[in-house]
């Protein structure tokens, strides 16, 4: 019983340890500005990672997630720069994001093509659509109100975008843990054939998974466009493999069936603390990538060692 630490708790401890280490060695890490910085930087990536996690739990993957975000970001920017009110353009942006998700979900469930292929195709497709709309130019011209979403503070303390992220993290956690849909998501991930035979409408559930992922991508797009004051074809494109990495670092099984919001949130925090702290230490960016990769593998090795040890204990008890 001593080793009752779950995967998620270990990650939490690692995040905490990193935080303490950075506080000690990185000058200015603990300053109010820097903490605010990190809180502004985290949500957009966190939301994408959450979306990716939900898809991975079903055993799929969504390679088009960043271009979905970019497409809805670009449409919001287009609407606003043409003078449509903020709320309507946000709504349209979300709807376009959902349409992208629907396209993925539809091809995956109705035609039955494997998710990696579908989303690879739609990734290139969405990128092409954005290019043909924008001709590669970036689009800006947001209202001041809109800029507050990504840059404003809530009650003068916490960045609004952080609140949005926490809100959606909680929503995701509730949806996955407390609803019928959530239970189906896990069941499909661990054995889709068995869940189909036990009467679950798997294609409906999976369709909703892609819709939900694209919804989170659209929300992330709102934060990104507002924060960067622009929308462009490569909006957030560097988050694609990072979000997969964050989901898996957070303990999500890549084959599906397991994954927790808390784990992903911890993983996102670890990436954030590392990236920010190493920047403050003036470590070259290339080395930051090396360290991130090393941490990813190290954490999984720890998990492996832990389960091995746990198994041994259990073996001893039984013998």
């Amino acid at each position: 019983m001593k080793i009752a630490l779950s995967k998620e708790n270990i990650l939490g401890l690692i995040a905490l340890a990193l935080f303490v280490v950075m506080t000690i060695i990185a000058p200015g890490f603990l300053s109010a500005e820097n903490i605010n910085n990190m809180m502004f930087q985290l949500p957009e990536f966190g939301l994408l990672a959450l979306g990716m996690m939900v898809v991975i739990i079903t055993g799929g993957i969504d390679l088009s997630i960043t271009y979905t975000a970019a497409l809805s970001g670009v449409s919001i920017a287009m609407m606003q720069s043409h003078g449509y009110p903020m709320m309507i353009s946000i709504l349209v942006g979300i709807l376009i994001g959902l349409a992208c998700g629907f396209m993925n979900g539809f091809i995956v469930t109705r035609i039955g093509v494997s998710p990696i292929l579908v989303t690879l195709g739609t990734m290139i497709l969405f990128e092409g659509v954005i290019l043909s709309i924008t001709k590669g130019n970036s689009i800006s011209g947001f209202s001041d109100w809109y800029n507050l979403i990504g840059n404003g503070y809530y009650l003068g303390l916490i960045p609004l975008s952080m609140i949005i992220f926490i809100f959606f993290a909680v929503v995701t956690s509730v949806l996955l843990g407390k609803t019928y849909w959530g239970r189906c998501v896990y069941m499909i991930g661990s054995n889709s054939v068995a869940s189909l035979f036990s009467g679950i409408n798997t294609s409906r559930v999976i369709l909703k998974v892609y819709l939900y992922a694209s919804f989170l991508a659209a929300i992330s797009a709102i934060i990104m466009t507002s924060r960067y004051n622009t929308a462009k074809v490569d909006l957030g494109s560097s988050y694609l493999l990072q979000s997969v990495a964050a989901a898996v670092l957070g303990g999500t099984e890549i084959q599906g069936g397991y994954g927790k919001v808390v784990g992903t949130v911890y993983a996102v925090m670890i990436f954030q603390i590392l990236s920010n702290g190493l920047n403050l230490l003036e470590v070259p960016r290339t080395i930051v990538n090396v360290i991130m990769g090393a941490i990813l593998i190290a954490v999984l090795v720890i998990n492996f060692a832990k389960t091995k040890l746990g198994n041994k204990d259990r073996m001893q008890v039984t013998s």
């Binding site: 990538n289 360290i291 990769g293 593998i297």
Partner: peptide
């Protein structure tokens, strides 16, 4: 070590590239 292939190779990719 029984780490899923995609994770291992994501990690080594990021390290080698860096």
């Amino acid at each position: 070590i029984e780490i899923p292939a995609i994770v291992v190779t994501l990690g080594t990719m990021s390290m080698i590239n860096g």
